[in-house]
Structures are given as C-alpha cells and as structure tokens.
Write a protein that binds this DNA or RNA. Structure first.
Lengths: 213, 213, 213, 213
DNA sequence: CATGAATGAGAGTTCATTCAT
DNA sequence: CATGAATGAACTCTCATTCAT
C-alpha cells in the first residue's frame, strides 16, 4: 500500500530540515571545506546516502542554505518596507537585525564568511553580485528617505551592524550586544529636530558631503 | 663551490615567503579546508615536497601565517604605545589599521574569518583565547586613557573597524574606505573640550553606563 | 472487490514483461555493470521496490533474460529439427536466425557480449558451458547430416552468422543484412550436385549487384 | 637532488603500462561497468591513488586503451597499404588480423564489445562514428581494387573475420582459428583466373579434415 | 501489490604526506 | 635543497537492497 503523496512530502520535509540544520552549524563553525558529508549525516541523525536523495551534491546543500537565508532576509525586509516613518522603520529594522543575530547566529555567521570569500563557490561571481545587491537594498531600506540622507552615515551604520555581528560571532553571549543595540538605536533612530531640541549633534556630521564611489 | 650559510638562509627565506604568500591568498579566499597543498605549491611555484621541508604539515602553514600576523600587529601596537596623547594615539592607530586593511588585505580577511570559526582549528580554544586577549588589548590601546572612557563607545569603535574591514573584504576597492576613515577620525579623535568649544556632543553618550561583561 | 486469481497473474505477468524489457535494453546497450536498478525501474515505469517483488536481485534479472532467450532458441531449433532435408532445414534455420537478429536485436546483442565475457557473471563457468553446448548443437543442426559434412565449412558458416550479427548490432538498419542473407542462402543451401549440374560457382554470385548502404 | 626528466618519464611510462594492461584485461573480461578502480590497481600492483596521477577518471582509462588500439590498427594498415597486388595484400592483412586476434586478444575483445554498445560511453556518437569509418577503410583496404569487386563479398569476408574473432573470444585456443584462417586465405586470396585454371572449387576444401577440439 | 524514503557497503576520487633520487 | 611519483586514508558520491506504509 503506497503512502499518500502528503505523507511522502512530510517525511521529505523533515529529513531535509535535519540535514540543512546540521550542515548549517558545521559549515558556519568549521567552514565548508572542512565539513565532511559524513559529519553532516552524523549530526543530522541520518545516513550518508539519504543526503543525496535531497541534494545533488555537497555544494547544493550550501546553496540551499544560502537560499533559505536570503528568503528569510527578504521576508524581514518586506515586513518593514511600508513603514512610513523612516526613523521608526530604522528602529524596528535594527531591533530585528540584532534579534536575528542571536537567534539565527549560524546563518549570519555563514553569510558573513561567504560574503568575504569570493572563490569559495564555483559560481562565486553570480553569488557575490546577489550578496552585493542584497546589502545595497538593505542600506537603502535602512537610511533611504531620512531627512538628512548622508551616504557615509548610511555606510557607517551598516558597517557598525556587520562589526557587531562579527564580534558576537567571536565572543558569543559574553559580548554585550544588547547594550550596543540600545546605544545605536538611541543614536541613530532619533530625528534630528528632536535631537536639536536638546543639543545639536548632527552639525559636525552633515557638513562632510564626501562623495561615495 | 659551497654556498655561504647566509646564502642558504636567504634562499630558505625566499621559498618560505613564496609558500606563505600563496597559502595566505588561498586560505583567505577559499578557506583552509578547501585549499590543497597541491594548489599552494602550484601558486607558489615550488614542488609539493618542498613545502614539507619548511612546514611539518598543512596546519603548521596556517599557524605560521597566524604568527606572522600577530607579530605584525604587535609591532604596530608597540609603535604607538608610548604616545602620551590618547587622541593622537587613537588617530594614528586608526590610520594604521585602515592602511593595513588594504595593504594586508589577505591577512586581515583570514583573521576575521578564523576569529569567528571556533572549531576550524584543532586547538581552537587556545586560539580563540589568544585572539580574544589581542582584541581586548587593542581596544584598551585605542580607548584606554581617554578622559571620558566609555566602554560602550570603545566597543562601538572597535565594531565599526571590524565592520568596515568586512565590507572592504566584500567589495574591494569600490568600497569608500578612505571616506569612512576620515569621517571616523574626525568623529572619534577629537578631545571633548575641543568639541565642546563648538557644541556639546558627549552629553547623550556618557549617561549610559552599561556594564560590560 | 477481490480480483480473480487470473487477473492477478495477468498483472504480474505484465509487470514482469515491462521489467525484463527495460532491463534487456539497458543491459544490451550499456552493459550489465553500468546499468542501475534505478534506471531499469525508470524505463519500465515501475518503482524500484516493485522489481524486488519479482526478482531476488539484479543478477536474477539477467538470468531471467538469459533463460527466456534460451527457451526462445530452443523452441526455434525444435521447430526445424524434424525437417528431413538438411539443405532445406539449413535454409529455413538461416532465415529464422536472420529474422530474429533484427526482431530480437537486444537479446542477440546481450548474448553475443555475454558469450565473450567470461567473468561477467559470478558462476560464469556454468554459464559458458551452457552457451557452448547450445552453440555446438546449433552447428550440428545447421550442418549435421549434409552429404559432404566438412567441419571447417560448418564453423565458417557459424562464424559468418555471428559476424553478420555483430555488424548488424554495430550499424543497425543501414547494414544490408537482407542482401547478405540471400547470398548466404544461395551459397550454402544448395546441394553440391545441383550446383555442379549448373554452372561455375562464381557466375551466380556476381549478378546480384545489391547496393550497399 | 631531483630526478632527471628522463627518469621521471621512464617511471611514468612503466606505471602507465601496468595500469593500462590491467584495465584492459578487466574491461575486456568483466565489462567496463563491472570493473572497479580498486581491482585495476590490485591487478596492476599499484595504489588506487596512483591511477589518478595518470588518468583523470575511469572513463579516461578506457579512452586511452581505445586510442592505443586505434593507433595499433592504423600502423597495421599503413604497413600494407602500398602493396600493389590486391590479392597478396589481402592475404597478408588477413594473416596479420588473425595473428593479432590471438596475440592482442584483450584489445580485440574489448573493441568488439564496445563497437556494439552504443551508450556505454558518454560521447558514444562520436565514438561510433570513428569505429564505423575505421571499419569501412579496413574493408576498402581488404577488397578495394580486386578485379571483381563485389561489395557483398567484401562484407561477407569482413563479417567472417568478426565472427571468427567472436568465436575465438568465446572458446579460446580450442577454437581452430588456424585452420579457418588457412581455408579463408585459400578461398579469398586467389585471383579468379588462377582458380578457374585449376579445378572445381569444392575439391580443395574437403581434404582438410582438421579435427575440432 | 506498490511506493519511494532510508540504509550502508562500496565505488570513484582527492589529498596530505612520504620518499627515492 | 628540490622533485614529483607513490601511498592510503578519508572524502564525495552511487547503488543494490530493505522496509514502513
């Protein structure tokens, strides 16, 4: 008596998840090239052979992880895209990003590394291009229609996020990411007029209109 | 006609350099596990066998690279340690760091990755500990005896540097690192009293005394 | 609504045929060792599991094919065994053999190959012995009680048939097997007294200018 | 002290020969797909890894064997191409071919099989085309400028040769190839005028009562 | 009876490492 | 000191076979 298609699909989905999850952790922590299929299978609790029922080869596992991460990021950005207040959007996005950094640590770590290693993948050119566009649109989303849109400031904020991620990956929970998050949100998500009501801060940053690229 | 010992030593040094340089590039761009001894030999223009005249095994090459980088960093920090003016020291150190980022791109990239990948190396615990201490003393050097030593601000500056490095590794020379450097130096290397002569900035940063670790 | 036993049997027979037919084609064209159960199932349009309902293992499929072919050959020879005129028997057998060569191309190809590859099968000794006896009795049937029984001539005719089969397997329908068949029948199926009564042998062969390919 | 290039080449050639020779025997007797690299290495007396110093993959070993065989055949045909007497050329070529059949049994067997198995190789179309042309030029060489060039007769002779080869591969030295060779040469390598001058054709064939096995 | 997910032994292939020269 | 042929363990991947449903 054959299983019904849904049953098969269910089984498949469960195995797939186990594999992806195991591979993600190993790729992120030991690197793609230093991770063996054997070790993925062991950690996933499945047989070596089963992995090849789901992914053509080792590279495809990495690609599947990458795709999932991209979809995740896309959903996240779509969620906030319609927020009309750019400072509020920034705030919520930053909160989201820092949350994700600790909750999806493995994905973030893997992507951070891959984004620097052109040549780790065969079709790395295409890969790099996609990463690049993704990041650009993230910055746009983050700083796009602020009243004072200073491109350097946008890049600084972006770099700051990456840097905090890097440090979190290095040091784990002993790194005071929460404190940094709060400081950053205070610093970067207050409209200038509100600040100016207190003390002017913007003044010395806005006059440097350094052209970017 | 036997060579003089110095000539021998010279030759040895040259081969060693070629090997390290080739390995560095490959490790940085493709990852340690995805780099073969064969490919290192090919890129270095030496035979596979020769590599084993200089390094016990593949791991030792990585360690040698790591040691060189550490020594380099140590020399850099020693150079500025005695600067009595903390703001000037910061400025010079930042300049130095950004210079190094482009001139020693491969080293930086490799260290960035390794610093996140606990488990890439066998004795990764020891490795992580050293990296950690190194970074702490870097932050200390960078922000140590500023008049207003805000630990969060120190971490932010440190993260910013890491983040800019990450982005430079991603995008290469199209990334406007110079502009960012200038902005950061302006922002972070001016004593508060000079700034206060203009407008107060410190006020809203010093009240967050978030304890760090 | 339980099926009647005959219906069951019918279904079984149909599946079996599909499997044998798919396996035959693949074994013949790609070789036993280069054919996967998966590919047999795909070509037969059944599931991998089903194959094991009918055949214990991969080898058994080959054996089943072999048995079918042998039975087929046995039937063929039995059909002609009682023909009292050896030249007529020869003629009809040759016609039958050439017909079979094109109609059962796959069987013939597989047997041709297996007959040369001692060691392809586990119990190849036994296999070879059977093939050998089969061929001997074929030759006996073909040339047995001719008036002038020249063993060399018998072997030549046998080799000729094999050779034509080989060439047909190579070149397919562009190979002029029909023309060769006719020539052979004319040449080999005429009693010597009839020939001698007529003309010198060469004459009747040169007038057939059958175009080749 | 590095080896001299000739020394390396010598070593390489020796290993290559061992590998090819082992692979040839196994491919011929068990089939390509049923032969493992492991078994080739064992028979050749080298390590599995070494094989990949010489051949990119398993397929390449087969191709190298094929190329060698083709070159061998080419040399053979070149040797006789300039013989002005077509009957003499035929005779010498046939002698050569039968000699080769026993001395290069493995090559012949492998090629016989491959020539029928389109689909055994990836680029089998190209492969088949080459085989085809080779055979055509062989037939041309064999029967080209006979006085009475009957294409059917050329194909018959060609098929006869293939068929004898097939039978030799099946039965080995018990197969009376020598006797068949002599008969064929007598039959096919005498100019028609010489024959006609003599006696009826049948007579000289029946006196060879060569016992068979 | 029929399915395809799952297994694991073993296949093909790579690669760090050794060593004779 | 320098070479690359050689090794074998470990790797990626395939496949005959099993089995729950």
């Amino acid at each position: 008596m054959p299983r019904r298609p849904e049953q098969f699909e269910e089984l498949r989905e469960k195995s797939r998840k186990k594999i992806i999850s195991a591979a993600l952790e190993l790729f992120a922590n030991k690197g793609y090239g230093s991770t063996s299929i054997e070790s993925i299978a062991r950690k996933a609790g499945v047989s070596k052979g089963l992995i090849y029922n789901y992914y053509r080869d080792k590279k495809s596992i990495l690609m599947a992880i990458y795709d999932e991460a991209m979809q995740y990021g896309e959903r996240m950005m779509a969620e906030h895209r319609d927020d009309p207040d750019p400072y509020h959007r920034r705030k919520v996005m930053l909160e989201h990003v820092f949350d994700m950094t600790s909750r999806q640590e493995k994905y973030i770590k893997l992507l951070l590394i891959l984004s620097m290693q052109h040549g780790a993948l065969k079709d790395s050119k295409e890969f790099a291009r996609k990463m690049f566009k993704r990041n650009e649109s993230f910055i746009e989303e983050l700083s796009g229609d602020l009243k004072t849109n200073d491109p350097i400031e946008g890049l600084l904020l972006d770099a700051l996020i990456d840097g905090i991620m890097v440090n979190y990956m290095r040091y784990g929970d002993v790194y005071p990411m929460e404190a940094l998050k709060e400081r950053i949100i205070k610093e970067y998500c207050t409209p200038p007029d509100v600040k100016n009501a207190g003390v002017a801060r913007k003044t010395n940053t806005t006059k440097h209109k350094i052209k970017q690229r």
